[in-house]
């Protein structure tokens, strides 16, 4: 393995910070596009930033039934999600921290955050929290096989689970030459919608017992803790988007490191992610929330799609 200089590690940290800092912006863009496509005006795209700053300054109320699990969860959630951002290439073709962990570690970090989130939902002794927790539990159980199968397909086609290796071999080929990866794309897209709580799975904009999943888990949070929860959700979404564009649309990475090159790289990255975000926002406008027990049909589709991907690789 080649060793990286301090400068390159600095660039790696810059990449992670970009993901962390830009994530609320993507949320804002998606909300704006959703509002526009539903003929509403909608808040400005910087609104999530104002929300987070406002929440960070507020006093908080904690349920008297809760234990330290409840108070620790937002921190664990944020730290695991933000750490996962260190492994994602943004404008470079690699991440200097790629040696430390691979895509399975990223999945594991997400799962750790989710585990504590489900516990926090149970901790407050209200039925809302429990309701959110079991739904979240069911979804994550079902998504898991699809996720690992998709990782398997990607690892087969692009030799490795190391994200830097995946992205660089993806950069050498194109989607038209490796058609099996198309199946992985479909599966990954469905998983992405499920993991970030998008519309056929979960309606993030309502507080209605029938529909909410993620919202009911964070229902009891306020102040700083709520800000951290919301922000880590945004970061998770950003990481999944970034992985999606890195794996399936790996064009325009910076090769010579210069100030101009890097700023162009960042701009290209933001454009790619915003296009993807707008696309998902449109899909969200088009579909309705599915009944909870029908969601498994959609995930079954992701599973079978990645299964065919495997077949395409081998036969």
């Amino acid at each position: 393995m080649s060793d990286f200089s301090i400068f390159e590690y600095g660039l790696g940290i810059l990449q992670a910070l970009l993901i962390i800092v830009l994530s609320p912006l993507i949320v804002g863009i998606m909300r704006k596009i959703k509002a526009k496509s539903q003929k509403r005006i909608g808040a400005g795209i910087c609104q999530p930033y104002y929300d987070i700053i406002k929440l960070l300054r507020k006093d908080e109320i904690v349920s008297d039934q809760s234990s330290w699990i409840f108070r620790v969860t937002p921190w664990i959630n944020f730290v695991t999600t933000a750490s996962a951002a260190f492994f994602i290439p943004v404008f470079l073709i690699y991440s200097p921290f790629g040696v430390v962990g691979d895509v399975l570690l990223v999945v594991g970090l997400f799962a750790l955050g989710k585990f504590f989130m489900m516990l926090a939902g149970l901790d407050v002794a209200s039925s809302f929290g429990g309701l959110g927790s079991i739904r979240e539990m069911m979804m994550s159980v079902l998504v898991e096989p699809a996720l690992f199968m998709t990782i398997f397909v990607i690892a087969l086609f692009y030799d490795g689970t190391n994200i830097s290796t995946i992205v660089s071999s993806a950069n050498d080929t194109s989607i038209l030459i490796v058609p099996g990866i198309l199946f992985a794309l479909i599966a990954f897209f469905i998983i992405m919608m499920a993991e970030t709580g998008k519309l056929p799975f979960d309606n993030p904009s309502t507080h209605l017992e029938l529909t909410m999943i993620h919202e009911s888990v964070v229902l009891e949070y306020s102040g700083k803790n709520l800000a951290l929860m919301e922000w880590s959700h945004a970061i998770k979404q950003m990481i999944l988007f970034a992985l999606f564009v890195d794996i399936f649309f790996p064009w325009n990475f910076v090769e010579q490191i210069s100030l101009v090159g890097i700023s162009i790289g960042i701009l290209v990255f933001i454009t790619k992610v915003s296009v993807l975000a707008s696309f998902t926002a449109f899909i969200e406008t088009l579909v309705a929330k599915w009944r909870l027990f029908r969601v498994s049909d959609l995930i079954a589709m992701a599973i079978s799609s990645s299964m065919i991907g495997v077949i395409f690789f081998f036969l």
Binding site: R57, D59, E60, I61, S83, E220
Partner: peptide, 28 residues
């Protein structure tokens, strides 16, 4: 990475948010 992120976030939240109070109250 986990520890450094934790320290970074802790400092960030402290600087932006300042000191806030925590109240105990019944579950909604």
């Amino acid at each position: 990475i986990l520890t450094s992120v934790f320290v970074g976030v802790f400092v960030f939240v402290r600087i932006i948010g300042g000191k806030t109070k925590t109240m105990k109250y019944g579950t909604w």
